[in-house]
């Protein structure tokens, strides 16, 4: 059984059908890449899975549970952990506070939280520091989060999704606009994570990167799935080349 199963998903904005009859599955322990030309509906699918807006039709199953009607925060709590195309930070807080927010899931409990500090306890701070070390985010945890450079923001995003208790990582263009060194670092990191048994669904435009890390590729075009399979097979499919590159093969 796939960890995440998208079944006939549909979503229209006004007159534009952003996603239509979209179905695919994400297998446990593997890296699945969602690719397709700009405007293919990849990010819309991510938003639908996260629950930022309701689907018009279709179902989203996660570990066999139907998520389709759940509010976004419950989905986050069930183990969906995602990044955004452009880093979105809690910009008046420090790096550490941002990361602690991802780590703790019960901080809305007013009375339980009453006697704790906002900088967490020692174990929490150590978890944050360890994860920053693992990802390679070198920054004083107490600096304002807005001091992070673009590349550091990308690493920060990964640190945050990893700290959030999760079953599935959803990365929206993790290496868009980063330098080649950092790109290689991400390759290594994602493979390491897979080795640890993580399940990853990512959106990416860089085909070399996809070829290097993905076990399975799903190609979207005009809101629906055009092809899927291993990178070797899919990236040679003439339909994919045509949709993606506009090539007349």
């Amino acid at each position: 059984m796939p960890l995440l199963e998208i079944d006939n998903l549909g979503k229209a904005f006004g007159g534009v059908q952003a996603v239509r009859t979209c179905s695919f599955g994400v297998q446990t322990g593997r890296i699945t890449a969602l690719i397709g030309p700009n405007g293919a509906g990849k990010t819309t699918v991510f938003h639908l899975i996260s629950g930022f807006f309701p689907a018009d039709s279709g179902r989203i199953l996660f570990e066999g549970n139907d998520l389709t009607r759940l509010p976004a925060w419950k989905r986050g709590r069930m183990g969906l952990s995602r990044t955004f195309q452009l880093s979105r930070l809690f910009k008046n807080l420090t790096v550490e506070e941002n990361l602690l927010l991802a780590l703790r899931e019960d901080d809305h409990r007013f009375w339980c939280m009453f006697f704790r500090g906002r900088r967490g306890d020692g174990a929490e701070r150590k978890a944050v520091a360890d994860m920053m070390l693992f990802v390679g985010l070198e920054k004083d945890p107490k600096t304002p989060v807005t001091d992070l450079s673009y590349g550091q923001q990308k690493l920060f995003d990964l640190t945050r999704v990893l700290l959030h208790p999760h079953r599935l990582l959803m990365l929206d263009e993790p290496i868009a606009g980063v330098n080649p060194v950092l790109r290689d670092r991400f390759k290594v990191l994602l493979k390491q994570l897979k080795g640890k048994g993580e399940t990853i669904l990512l959106i990416e435009h860089d085909m070399d990167f996809v070829r290097a890390v993905a076990d399975e590729v799903i190609v979207m075009d005009q809101g629906t799935v055009l092809a899927s399979g291993t990178p070797a097979v899919v990236l040679k499919d003439p339909r994919v080349l045509e949709a993606y590159l506009g090539l007349d093969v």
Partner: peptide, 9 residues
Amino acid sequence: EVAMALGKP
């Protein structure tokens, strides 16, 4: 939105 994605009600 990010807060929601992190499971904050």
